[in-house]
Amino acid sequence: MNTYQRKRRRPVSEINVVPYIDVMLVLLIIFMVTAPLVTQGVKVDLPKAEAQALDEEAKPPLVATVDAQGQYYLNVGDTQDEAMSAVDLATLVATHLQREPETPVVVKGDGAVAYSQVVDLMVLLQRAGAPSVGLMTSPPEN
């Protein structure tokens, strides 16, 4: 007598996550490619000078900008391209430096702006708690 035994298959309760991993990798690559293209800023004509570049491994600096009309900008938050008052700028810088005290602070002043306005911005940053303030320049054209 041959007895035929039929094996019962149990239902598999596993989820195949390989397609989800593929989609996530594609999204990661898309975001890595598009992130540098999304950077925003205020257009200023920086003075030309030879200067040593900031260390690339350091934290990204706080960039306080004064444009040709004397308006202030800061590269923090969602309002990077909106002008702000001196009080708002000082408050934002002080708050950021309390959270991350090692953050370098740099002034980006338009070449056409009066020197006194750049100095006023530097004093404002110093009063907000910046231990030192650097000046941002463009490399000279040869």
Rank of each mutant, 00 (worst) to 15 (best):
S85G: 09
M32P: 01
E50N: 10
T91F: 06
A90Q: 10
P131W: 14
K7I: 01
A51F: 03
T65M: 06
A114H: 07
A83T: 06
Y20K: 04
A51I: 05
V18E: 15
F31M: 07
I29W: 06
L62C: 13
E102A: 09
V123P: 13
D110Q: 02
R10F: 14
S116L: 10
D81H: 11
Q69R: 03
R6F: 09
A94C: 06
E102G: 09
N16C: 04
V18D: 15
E102I: 01
R9P: 05
T91G: 11
S132Y: 12
T91Y: 08
A94L: 03
V133C: 10
M32T: 00
E141T: 09
Q40P: 06
L28C: 09
L25N: 07
D81V: 05
M136R: 14
T137I: 08
Q40A: 08
A90I: 09
D88R: 08
V105D: 00
A128M: 01
Q52E: 11
L46D: 13
A128K: 03
Y20V: 05
T137G: 14
Q98P: 14
Q126T: 06
P19G: 15
V23G: 06
L121V: 00
F31Q: 09
V38R: 15
T39I: 04
L125K: 06
P139M: 12
L124W: 10
Q71T: 03
D110T: 05
P140W: 11
L28M: 08
P19M: 13
G77Q: 10
Q69D: 13
Q126D: 08
G41K: 10
D120M: 02
Q117W: 04
T91M: 06
K108Y: 04
T137S: 14
V23K: 04
V107S: 06
Y72T: 13
L27K: 02
L125A: 08
A68Q: 01
G109Q: 04
M24W: 01
D22Q: 09
I30R: 08
I30E: 10
V26S: 04
